[in-house]
């Protein structure tokens, strides 16, 4: 599959920003390992989830606890992530990539479409088909990531900020309070990690040389060989 320069550029900038945000986010989670619903929360009995302590190899900075530096990484990468996402949304709405390749009509959500795609993966039919467009499951996954989970990270992040709240108290209320926004921030982050794991697995299933090549130089090696 060929990808536009805007897609390739955003994909890798976003990937780098997400890795920094996720790992520094694990340090921030380690600072207070409980999640709550509503506006306040401190006591263990108020928590809906007691979070594990994330190990040093998974956090940023690595192998040492430094909340101040983790917040620096997090709040700096957040600019790259949020502005990149905004710019990418504008580009794909203007150039038609979203409407043409990602937006999934009602037909994508039918059991036939979903089961058909899964059967295609299991039989290897999807791979042989070399189809240029995304299958229904890909459309659904990319639409949710682009439309729900990535913007959800930005919005729940903003909702936790005491400097934003005076300007947009409705944002905090929309998530059900500051501690709820913090819980959703955590849930969305792990939903994105789940996507990443499946996404990378599929890259290997589909052939990493071809797919990575396509996301870096726009053509697969075969295209290139054929001229």
């Amino acid at each position: 599959m060929r990808h536009a320069l805007s897609t390739r550029l955003w994909h890798w900038i976003n990937a780098a920003a997400l890795v920094v945000l996720f790992m520094s986010g694990l340090t921030i989670s380690n600072a207070h390992r409980r999640l709550y619903w509503g506006n306040y929360g401190f006591a263990p009995e108020d928590a809906w989830l007691h979070v594990v302590r994330f190990p040093g190899w998974a956090t940023l900075p690595m192998f040492r606890y430094d909340l101040a530096e983790a917040r620096d990484w997090h709040n700096t990468a957040a600019w790259l992530f949020a502005l990149g996402l905004l710019a990418y949304w504008i580009v794909i709405l203007v150039n038609g990539h979203f409407r043409r390749d990602i937006a999934a009509g009602p037909s994508a959500y039918t059991p036939q479409a979903v089961l058909g795609t899964i059967r295609g993966y299991l039989t290897g039919e999807n791979r042989r088909a070399e189809k240029a467009d995304y299958n229904p499951l890909q459309r659904i996954a990319y639409a949710f990531v682009l439309g729900v989970f990535l913007p959800g990270m930005v919005l729940t992040g903003l909702a936790m900020s005491p400097g934003i709240e005076p300007a947009a108290p409705w944002l905090v209320e929309a998530f059900g309070g500051r501690q709820s926004a913090r819980s959703f921030h955590f849930i969305f982050a792990f939903a994105l990690l789940g996507f990443l794991i499946v996404h990378v697995a599929m890259v290997f299933v589909a052939g990493p040389v071809k797919t990575l090549g396509g996301m870096i130089v726009a053509r697969s090696p075969k295209d290139r060989a054929l001229g």
């Binding site: 207070h32 506006n39 909340l67 500051r178």
Partner: peptide, 12 residues
């Protein structure tokens, strides 16, 4: 008002 600690917890 709500008090938000840098660690992540809040109290009112």
């Amino acid at each position: 008002t709500r008090h938000d600690c840098v660690e992540g917890w809040s109290a009112i």
